[in-house]
Design a protein around this nucleic acid. Structure first.
Length: 110
DNA sequence: TGCTTGACGATCA
DNA sequence: GTGATCGCCAAGC
């Protein structure tokens, strides 16, 4: 799998995240066979601005922390988008993260 | 060419 | 429960 393919797959998986659900960088990395390379997913997301229809706000870290909020132009934008999908956010963290967590390797089952 | 950094995560002390 | 360390792999300098 080339790095370009990895990028496209990341974007595709992110686009498949149901509204009102969130996932983690690690979960995406694991699903794409890049277990342990969660940083690559984050790095790919950093370039997701060039893509369209990529709900990057639905991707948070393992702790449900909105670590990528500063890449949305306005830091409050990410939280705002999540709250608009009935996802509670407090102190830069998704409330009931386990409840909203969407694991591609479980939901998509390859 | 080589070192540092990074939207991360798991492990160990 | 907290803090330090390593693995991951690409980009920037």
């Amino acid at each position: 799998m080339s790095k370009e393919q990895f990028f496209q797959d990341v974007y595709e998986v992110v686009r498949l995240i149901p509204k009102g659900r969130v996932t983690s960088y690690g979960a995406i990395a694991a699903y794409l066979g890049r277990k342990g390379s969660a940083r690559m997913v984050g790095w790919a997301m950093n370039h997701s601005h060039a893509e369209e229809g990529v709900p990057a706000h639905r991707v948070v870290n393992r702790q449900g922390l909105l670590t990528g909020k500063h890449h949305f132009g306005d830091p409050y934008r990410m939280q705002e988008l999540l709250e608009s999908e009935n996802i509670g956010v407090e102190n830069d963290q998704v409330l009931h993260f386990e409840k909203y967590f969407w694991d591609p390797s479980e939901e998509l089952k390859l």
